Simulated assay, not measured.
Amino acid sequence: MTENAISNAVAVRDNGPAAQIEQYRDEYAALVPSHVNADQWIRLAVGAIRGSKDLMEAAQTDVGVFLRELKTAARLGLEPGTEQFYLTPRKSKAHRGQKIIKGIVGYQGIVELIYRAGAVSSVIVEVVRTNDTFRYIIGRDGKPVHEIDWFGEDRGEMVGVYAYAIMKDGATSKVVALNRRQVMEAKAKSDGRNSEYSPWNTNEESMWLKTAVRRLAKWVPTSAEYMREQLRAQAEVAGELAAAPSAASVPAMPQPTALDDADPDDEGPLEGELVD
C-alpha cells in the first residue's frame, strides 16, 4: 500500500461514521431516556457500523442521514443495529442510486416501548402456523387459545399473527389478529420490501410479529407520558380514586404513538427517494 493510500485510509477511519458517532457522543447521551446507559448505547451504535461492510459503505454515502437515523433510535431509547432498531442499507435516487442508511423500528423495539410506559404487565405476540391450533371468538374469549406442538418436526407455514397485552390490573387489551393476506397488505406498503437488506427478506417472521404489535401499540400506551399523566391524575383526585374504576379497565380507544412519526406503518421512503 502506498503512503497516499495509507493516509487516505486513516482519514476515512478518523472522519468516518464511527468517528462521527463518537464526536456527537454528548448529543446522543442527552437524547436517550434516563434509564438507558448512554455509553452502552454508543458502543452498540459503533459496533453495528464497524461490524458490517455494507452498513459502513452506506453510512459513508451520507453520514448526515445515518446520524439522523441514529437520533431517532436515541430519542426512542432503542438499541441500534438490533431487532429493536434495524439499520439497513437502502438505495436513494437523491444519491444517484448509492445506498444510504434507513433505520427501522423492530417488533422488539415496539414491545420495549409498550413495557416502558408502565401500563402493562406482559405483551404476547406470536405467529400462527398451519399445524398449530388457534381459537379466538370476539366477545366470547377473553384472549386467544394457541396450541403448539413444540416437539413436532414441522409447524408449517405462517398463516397468521396475533398480539395482545395484559394490563397491570389484570384486564386484557384489545386482541389484534391478522391473517396472511392482511400481513401481505402491510408488506406491500413498504417501499423497501424488495431490498435484499429489508427485514422482510432477512427476518420475515419478525416483520409478521411487528405488523401485529405495531397495531396493538395504538390500543395501549407506548410513552412514559402515560405514567406521568397517571401520577398527575392520582395527585389531583387522590380522595376519589378508591371509588373510581381503574383507567386500565376501561376499553381504550386507538391513539397516536411515538412510532407514528419515527416509524410509519408503510416504512415510507427516506426523503421520498428510495428505489430498489
Rank of each mutant, 00 (worst) to 15 (best):
A29C: 05
T72G: 04
W200M: 03
K102S: 10
L178R: 07
W150M: 06
R135P: 05
S223M: 06
A163S: 08
R232M: 06
R180V: 14
D154T: 07
R140E: 14
Q255S: 15
G156E: 01
T257R: 05
A117N: 09
M253F: 15
R43Y: 09
K99H: 13
V12M: 11
V128A: 05
Y115G: 03
V175A: 02
V159E: 06
Y107C: 12
L67T: 00
P256K: 00
S92W: 04
D266T: 03
Q23P: 08
A94Y: 12
R140T: 15
Y28S: 00
I110C: 00
R68Q: 13
G152H: 13
Q182M: 10
E147N: 11
V127T: 04
Y197E: 02
P33F: 00
D260L: 05
G268E: 13
V176M: 03
A30W: 03
R155T: 08
L87Y: 10
L76H: 08
R90H: 13
E236F: 10
A30I: 03
F151K: 05
M1G: 14
G106W: 14
R50H: 09
W150V: 11
D260R: 03
A45L: 08
E147I: 14
D54K: 02
L44C: 06
P89H: 05
G16I: 01
V32Q: 01
A258I: 12
R180Q: 15
V237N: 10
L259N: 01
L55P: 08
E229Q: 08
E204L: 09
E27W: 11
I137H: 09
A212T: 08
Y197M: 02
A38N: 05
D276G: 09
D260A: 02
D132L: 11
I166K: 09
R140L: 14
